[in-house]
Design a protein around this nucleic acid. Structure first.
Length: 926
DNA sequence: TGAGTCACG
DNA sequence: GACGTACGTGACTCAA
């Protein structure tokens, strides 16, 4: 009878408040006092109490606090918690407010002199489980994890929305709750000043306990341990280990200050809560909590299942595709529209019909109003090229005519997935959808780095459900049909399911946005970008087809000549483009020295390998390199680009992916216009093919060394910040610091190091790049850290944070998760560490240029630059088309927007420089 | 489909 | 002392 089993929530108030203080932004109440931590605490308490009627929600609840005086542990060990710094000055006055807030909720607040909160919690856990109750400990204190007991006691970390069970403890510490105390005893705890054993951290502690089974067994076996240092430490500090074991033991030797039954969670009386919230001046909370009645009744809840859920736990759903409706008449569509208006939100999903470009048609639109309640509205099904009538359906004109007022209705929220592409389709038809929420972008902001954000993948992750694959409707390969050619019944199952899933996903992710501090990135950066980027894609960029064709021809001729010379040198023809064959020719047939590499046992023939051969005087290596360059340029750029010109607009329309890159960057596809050659002279010619429309210039504006500037700011390196402020050359300054001179050679080395450091390079890797020994590489890195201690500090604090929280953050709060940061596979772990060092910098740069892009259309319009269009983004560069005569003015506006794009959210210690140029084509503008 | 290669920031 | 060797992308080819 699980329904009637009481479920006690024990809130570890003291630990929450300290973490909230550091994690939440400062916030001032009506009296001018900093109350950020109390605000967070209050919101959390509400969230918990609000879960009363929900599955696994509390029936009983208490807040446990530290009384502040010393505990019995100090009698055991006078140094216990001795080095703990005093609470921050602006946190101290918040502490009493915790009790006030708790009282406002009419929730019991328990504290007792001589006992720490942990022990009181342990007591209540024992009492409650003895009574057959379930218990959830609301905390993130690792000591308390000792109490976890599957089926009876679990732990909830509200700040990360994560639930810990036995498996989670084993994942984190390698041992179950019953052995956790032994592990903690070996580790010690510097914050609480639990001594532990020197030289033993979490890894070694876990390993020892796993191996021997208990702390006492470890100590007994200490003599036989191989590693000399470890053995000595264990023998010398055995007493400290035993003392630590006692310090981390949770004891339960008291009578309950409040009996269990007194903790029952009842309806919260409104008056005291209102009084408290009003006194603090927290209007948002007031509206949320009191505005809907002190406890929201079942009736006022939206129909959707509203439950906060971490990404880890999937919520199983049942899906009945046969239950979806097909709407083919105006009356039925009218009913759905009316219901959407009544409830104020609707999920939509457009089904395109054809390719990606402007020629794409619209096959239909699906709608969802509640979980499982979805329908498909076919609009353009049937064979276009035949005069057949097609299935029974509302036409495109009538259907969109009916939907347009709903889609543009300010009071109805439209939910979608990857709305940028859908909004583009509608904008082409004069429909401007608003307001809207995007499930893909919400997921990107919440779970970036954890998994991909495609609809199917999200559904799989969150609901353990497989969507009907598109290929089941449209087929695949040569036999694939357009969506509009599919039978309406099959199309309904696919399309309506998508809308249904969008609805469900949004309601699952919605509250996590605020709870996990993802709203800034979502609402201020990524969501508004939909419209800006959509407009850029629609605009496209003009390319000179004739010029590209000529270039293609030149490249082809030169390639043919190279091919002949290569075959002559190789003594026969082979497929140059096959690394396998090339390797055999070079290393087997010609007998050159080569290293075996790769998973297939093939020789490596990459650029560095061929350059090595060239240096040894192997002429054919140079020929192959030249052949590769020309082939690459011809096939990937000159040929492909011509084919990508849209016949309707005569321009190339790339598509930007908003939720693809882990760091928050955009990426560009079909074609990728973010990797157009520039570094080599011959490749750079391709940039000249990107031209401006008649009477216009192409204008390019790019940030100068933005990532190094951000590194200087984020790592707080005074020398680098000053150099940037003075407008000096940063690599020269680095060369001076490292080598005492700034000759060309030193500057080049410094440049390599500057970038290498930010990517977390090893001494071996740096040595390889600079052609020096590993020892010299290490010395150089050490010297760098010595001259710029901020960098070293940045790297270690960044890694520490990622190990602790699982994610890194940009200056704007964009999170990137690194699930591999604790991987036992060193390869993966070290890869994650390098990526984690880079992500905050690359990601902040991405945030900044995105903010510039969001503001740009408004700024241009305000300056009267109505003919100027933003066309392309290449990570640190924006490309515009500007009417002749407006270049100077546009340059000034663009420069201003870009240079100040971080403000006011972030104030940088370094200026952002923006270099602007323009001309007839991209080559001369850049 | 995966590996290898190479274009960009 | 071995480990594998710079961050982030996308497009193309070959070979299975």
């Amino acid at each position: 009878m699980p329904d009637t089993q009481p479920h006690l929530y024990l809130v570890d108030g003291s630990s929450y408040i300290f973490r909230a203080y550091h994690r939440l932004p400062p916030l001032t109440n009506r009296h001018g006092m900093n109350t950020g931590a109390v605000y967070g605490y209050t919101a959390m308490l509400w969230k918990l109490a609000d879960g009363l009627s929900k599955a696994d929600g509390p029936t009983h609840m208490a807040v446990i606090l530290d009384k502040g005086s010393s505990s019995f542990r100090n009698e055991m060990y006078d140094q216990y918690k001795a080095h703990r710094p005093p609470a921050p000055e602006d946190l101290v006055p918040q502490l009493p407010l915790i009790r006030v807030a708790t009282r406002a909720f009419s929730i019991p607040c328990i504290e007792q002199a001589g006992l720490e909160a942990d022990d009181i919690i342990a007591c209540y856990v024992t009492a409650a489980t003895n009574a057959g109750w379930k218990v959830t400990i609301v905390s993130s204190d690792k000591d308390l994890m000792q109490l976890i007991d599957d089926g009876k006691v679990d732990m909830l970390d509200t700040m990360n929305d994560r639930r810990f069970d036995r498996a989670a403890v084993i994942e984190k510490f390698g041992v179950g709750p019953e052995l956790l105390g032994d592990v903690l005893a070996l580790m010690g705890d510097s914050v609480d000043n639990v001594p532990g054993v020197p030289g033993i951290g979490p890894k070694t502690a876990t390993q020892l306990i796993q191996e021997h089974g208990s702390l006492e067994a470890v100590l007994a076996a200490a003599d036989g341990i191989k590693k000399p240092k470890l053995r000595q430490n264990l023998l010398e500090h055995a007493d400290n280990a035993r003392l630590s074991r006692e310090l981390v033991r949770l004891v339960c030797e008291m009578t309950l200050p409040e009996p269990l039954d007194a903790l029952e969670l009842k309806n919260i009386p409104e008056a005291p809560l209102r009084e408290f919230l009003e006194d603090q001046g927290w209007k948002t909370l007031l509206n949320r909590m009191v505005g809907q009645g002190a406890r929201p009744s079942e009736g006022t809840r939206p129909a959707a299942p509203v439950r906060p859920a971490g990404p880890g736990e999937a919520e199983a759903i049942s899906v009945d595709r046969a239950g979806y409706a097909t709407i083919t008449d105006a009356a039925t569509l009218g009913e759905w529209i009316a219901e959407a208006k009544a409830q104020g939100r609707i999920a939509i999903d457009l089904q395109g019909d054809g390719g990606h470009g402007l020629a794409e048609g619209l096959a239909g639109i699906s709608l969802a109003l509640a979980p499982g309640k979805a329908a498909y509205v076919p609009l353009g099904h049937g064979e276009k090229d035949l005069l057949s009538e097609g299935p029974d359906q509302l036409g495109l004109g009538e259907g969109l005519g009916l939907l347009e007022p709903l889609l543009e209705d300010e009071s109805v929220l439209k939910l979608g997935h990857n709305l940028k592409d859908q909004l583009k389709l509608l904008a082409d038809r004069g429909i401007h959808v608003r307001p809207a929420e995007d499930v893909m972008l919400a997921s990107f902001a919440l779970d970036g780095g954890r998994f991909g954000h495609g609809l199917d993948e999200l559904v799989k992750k969150h609901f353990e459900h497989d969507c009907l694959p598109l290929k089941a409707v449209c087929g695949t390969g040569q036999k694939a049909i357009r969506f509009g050619q599919a039978p309406v019944a099959a199309a309904t199952e696919y399309a309506a399911e998508n809308a249904d899933m969008v609805w469900r996903l949004w309601h699952r992710l919605e509250h996590r946005l605020a709870a996990e501090h993802a709203t800034r990135v979502y609402r201020l950066v990524d969501l508004p970008l939909i419209r800006t980027v959509g407009a850029m894609e629609r605009e496209g960029v003009k390319v000179d087809r004739t010029y590209l064709a000529d270039l293609s021809q030149t490249f082809a001729t030169e390639t043919a000549a190279l091919e002949e010379r290569i075959f002559a040198a190789a003594g026969g023809s082979f497929t140059i483009g096959s690394p396998q064959q090339l390797g055999q020719v070079l290393f087997d047939r010609l007998g050159l020295k080569g290293g075996r590499k790769g998973k297939n046992g093939n020789y490596s023939t990459d650029q560095s390998e061929l350059e090595r051969l060239e240096a040894d005087g192997v002429e054919v290596a140079r020929l192959v390199l030249d052949w590769r360059q020309l082939t690459k340029l011809r096939i990937t750029y000159t040929d492909a680009l011509q084919a990508q010109i849209d016949p309707k607009s005569g321009r190339v329309h790339t598509r930007y992916a908003l939720a693809a890159a882990q760091t928050g960057r955009l990426s560009s596809t079909d074609p990728n216009l973010q990797n157009i050659p520039i570094r080599t002279e011959i490749g750079a010619k391709i940039r000249n093919a990107f031209i401006a429309e008649d009477g216009h210039s192409l204008l390019s504006a790019d940030y100068g060394q933005i990532e190094l500037r951000l590194a200087a700011h984020m790592a707080d390196v005074p020398q680098l910040k000053e150099a940037f402020a003075r407008g000096e050359d940063i690599h020269t300054i680095t060369a001076q610091e490292l080598f005492g001179d700034a000759g060309k050679d030193s500057r080049n080395k410094a440049k390599t190091i500057n970038f290498a450091i930010l990517y977390g390079i090893s001494s071996w890797g740096l040595a390889g790049r600079l052609g020096i020994s590993t020892e010299e590489g290490k010395a150089m890195i050490d010297r760098y850290f010595e001259r710029f201690p901020g960098i070293k500090n940045y790297i270690s604090t960044t890694l520490q944070k990622v190990r602790e929280c699982g994610y890194s953050e940009t200056l704007f709060g964009r999170k990137t998760h690194f699930p591999n940061i604790k991987s036992g596979i060193m390869n993966l772990r070290q890869g994650a560490e390098r990526a984690a060092i880079n992500a905050p910098i690359q990601g902040t740069s991405a945030d900044i240029i995105k903010r510039a892009m969001v503001r740009m259309p408004g700024a241009l319009a305000e300056a009267g630059l109505t003919g100027t269009r933003m066309l392309l983004q290449v990570h640190d560069e924006l490309v515009f088309e500007v009417p002749h005569g407006d270049e100077e003015k546009a340059a000034a506006v663009i420069r201003d927007v870009m240079a100040h794009a971080a403000e006011p959210v972030v104030a940088l210690d370094v200026p952002l420089s923006v270099e602007v140029g323009w001309g007839d084509n991209w080559g001369v503008a850049h």
